[in-house]
Amino acid sequence: MGLPAVVVTHGAVRLFPSADHPAGARPEERPVGRYVARRLLLTIPVLIGASFLIFAMVYALPGDPIRALAGDRPLPASVQAALTAEFNLDDPLLVQYAKYVGGLLQGDFGTDFRGRPVLDTISQRLPVTVTLTAVAIFFEILIGITAGVLAGLRRGSFFDNLVLVSTTLVVSIPVLVLGFVSQYVLGVRLGWFPVAGITQGLYSYLLPGFILAATSLAYVTRLTRTSLADSLRADYVRTARAKGLAPRTVVVRHTLRNSLIPVVTFIGADIGGLLGGAIITEAVFNIPGLGRAVFDAVSQQEGAVVVGIITLMVFFFIFFNLVVDVLYAVLDPRIRYE
């Protein structure tokens, strides 16, 4: 997408210039603010491009959405003509898109065919998706990092092998299967979790959140394990031991910190992806999130809804990638912005 990447070089930029080391003392220093501003500006063309592509795809869908709306009963010709005119459906693609963007610039995200503002749909669905994502990320961090650290510290142990086998298993089962099986066993048969819906508050998010996290959870575990095992062999860990540091300090300060850098990167990018909604998980557990909304909107050819939500998802994705890049430089001083 032509976005500038964070580049590893020697001679890093300091994020927080200290008092006795004023900014500008080193010629290569560049403030992080400028980097972030530039990256944010670059998201504008990306968002325009993405929204146009989506708009074009919805336009290209076969069939007349107004007629579909009415079902079997044919609409009076006058009503159909009025609706078609209201939603600009007879205009050429570029004109439709221009009118849509024109509305956006006035803060109007458009409405669906029932007259409900798209912004309302988003503000209703977004909290659900954010909650589901938060639960999923919580599992990734809690279980993924813990299991990865334990496996990495005791390579070749029974636990390590258990982790290897179970993560392979999880990665190879499709989410759809995992979702239905867990819903049937844990929800229907054992009754430990609600079968579907979000009527029981946060509790009803636990099982869907876990299923949504499952694949990433496996990756986080494996990534943590490998990264930790690599760090443990590093020369600087040997130095830390030779310094007479307590074993705990050697592991926590001189091994974990270094080995979690790639894990943090992965999880950060995953947040952006998960916020894009989980169509399968939301469908299986009947959760009214953004993923569900997009699915319904596509099947009803609700152009404004599809474009509005997907553009938001693209923004989340870009934004969290930016957060990861900035965070990366905080964690690893060898990184500098370019």
Binding site: A240, A242, I261, P333
Partner: peptide, 14 residues
């Protein structure tokens, strides 16, 4: 106490 051959890898980069 001990010092090592390759100080770049023997010091923690972060």
């Amino acid at each position: 106490s001990m010092i090592f051959q390759d100080a770049l890898s023997a010091l923690n980069p972060v």
